[in-house]
Nucleic acid binder design. Structure first.
Length: 424
RNA sequence: GUGGGUGUAGCUCAGUUGGUAGAGCACCUGGUUGUGGCCCAGGUGGUCGAGGGUUCAAGUCCCUUCACUCACCCCA
């Protein structure tokens, strides 16, 4: 085998796909309950969309995007996240005209060219939720409540919801200035990464895990002290609101997001069970972004969950579901019987009766094994003898009881047998 | 981009100071002429990641390279 899958891209094999579908089904159900509608933007967009929304100087845009050049020299990019595309669709289709408040969700693949490791892949999948068109604190409360409830429904334990406020256009610059002042003062004591980050992403330093940095940063200015009145009021109302719903959360003044568009409330769902990664999901408010992308001056808030990470967590927490019972397996010996049974197999399938048919000509014993391995409830057996008698044999794989079924009206006879046994 | 770990059968992995490539599971056949799971017996299956070097002899030692994986970084 000389052609292998691309680094960081995974096959989701049938056994795995069952678990994916379970997660997706639960998400859809919860979203519908909260009044969110599915939207499916394309997975590829003009590069500029991401550059403008995520921010030119973020790691994602600077070095992680899969960007292609079109035949006309334009640049298009496989989406590294979903928010930008959803906002683009909202603006482009004027979805805000009838009612500016729109609630969306989408589920699908995202692409970032990073070095893969546990819980981090180049093609990964996100569940993404956006509540657009309002800056009401109720929106923030609903979004965080939705995140919390979704994780509960998915059966994921040991999650902490962390929240913070990043401030708005008014108060964030004030804070950034005092933070920079502070950082330049302690520059020489910081780790190498942090010294680099002073220029690239100073907020990120607050998140540094190096113990010496942590120690120094205890005295760093805190964004929450610099919030303007409206940001502060908003933050308080959100905290009260989620508290009133009984949602456990922790305020983390150092919590920062990696995308530039976030303003105000930011939050993450954190766990220790993901190897080096700690976030299952995260999100926040982005009040200037719709306008920045050429739309009306409307606000938005949303979050994303990583499906691969959810899967890692559900594997820790619960066992697998049992095998699915296959109602019927068809075992044919000889060409005549195969012809009869293939036809039967197709008719049953078209009547939504799941059944198995061996495409390989194998011995009876081997085919019985296949029936068993497919977890079949019944095996239907036909060979030369049966055909000449105008009969086939129906074997109950559990009780080993066998009975003869006339070939005349075979389809109806089998259908009745299966209905009677209530295996579907 | 930078580190560490690992590459041997379809899968999980043994393989001693260099001396004819192994086990378990899976698969196939038989025990049971045409009846599954359990058991027993037998069998198929390997360019030992790739290339080069040392040696009478290399899975094993040396060099190069590739892949996977974990971590840094970043993020979901």
């Amino acid at each position: 085998m000389d052609i292998k899958r691309i680094k960081g891209m995974n096959d989701i094999l049938p056994d795995e796909a069952i678990k994916w579908r379970r997660i997706e089904d639960i998400c859809r159900k919860v979203f519908m309950g909260f009044g969110y509608n599915e939207i499916r933007p394309p997975v590829i967009e003009k590069t500029e969309l991401f550059a403008r929304s995520i921010g030119e100087s973020t790691d994602i845009v600077e070095k992680e995007m899969y960007t292609l050049t079109t035949s006309k020299g334009g640049h298009i990019t496989l989406r590294p996240e979903a928010t930008a595309s959803i906002l683009r669709a909202y603006i482009e289709n004027s979805l805000y005209v009838q009612n500016p408040v729109q609630k969306f969700f989408t589920i699908g693949p995202m692409f970032r060219h990073e070095r893969p490791q546990k819980g981090r892949y180049r093609q990964f999948h996100q569940v993404d939720v956006e509540l657009l068109g309002t800056d009401s604190p109720y929106a923030d409360i609903e979004i965080i409540s939705l995140l919390d409830y979704l994780l509960i429904q998915l059966g994921i334990k040991d999650i902490t919801i962390q929240i913070n406020s990043l401030g708005c256009k008014e108060c964030r610059p004030v804070f950034q200035k005092s933070l920079l002042n502070f950082l330049q003062g302690v520059n020489k004591e910081l780790c190498q990464d942090c010294r680099r980050r002073i220029n690239t992403n100073p907020l990120r330093i607050l998140d540094c895990k190096v113990p010496s940095c942590k120690k120094i940063l205890i005295n760093a200015p805190v964004i929450l002290d610099d919030l303007c009145k409206s940001c502060n009021d908003h933050f308080n109302r959100v905290k009260d609101g989620i508290g009133a719903l009984g949602i456990a959360y922790k305020v983390i003044p150092g919590l920062v997001r990696g995308l530039d568009y976030y303003t105000g409330i930011a939050f993450e769902a954190i766990t220790d069970n993901l190897g080096a990664q700690n976030a299952v999901g995260g999100g926040g408010r982005y009040n200037g972004l719709i306008r920045e992308l050429g739309g009306p001056d409307l606000s938005g808030i949303g979050f994303a969950l990583g499906i691969e990470r959810l899967l890692l967590l559900t594997e820790n927490n619960r066992g697998e579901d049992g095998d699915v019972l296959l109602p019927l397996y068809l075992i044919a010996l000889g060409e005549k019987a195969r012809e009869l049974f293939f036809n039967l197999s197709q008719r049953l399938a078209r009547a939504s009766i799941p059944n198995g048919f061996s495409f390989l000509t194998k011995s009876l014993k081997a085919q019985m094994k296949l029936a068993d391995r497919n977890n079949a409830r019944f095996a239907l057996i036909a060979g030369e003898d049966e055909l000449s008698d105008g009969l086939v044999i129906l074997r109950d794989m559990q009780t080993k009881f066998q009975k003869q079924i006339p070939i005349e009206n075979l389809f109806e006879n089998i259908k009745n047998e299966i209905m009677e046994a209530e295996v579907i």
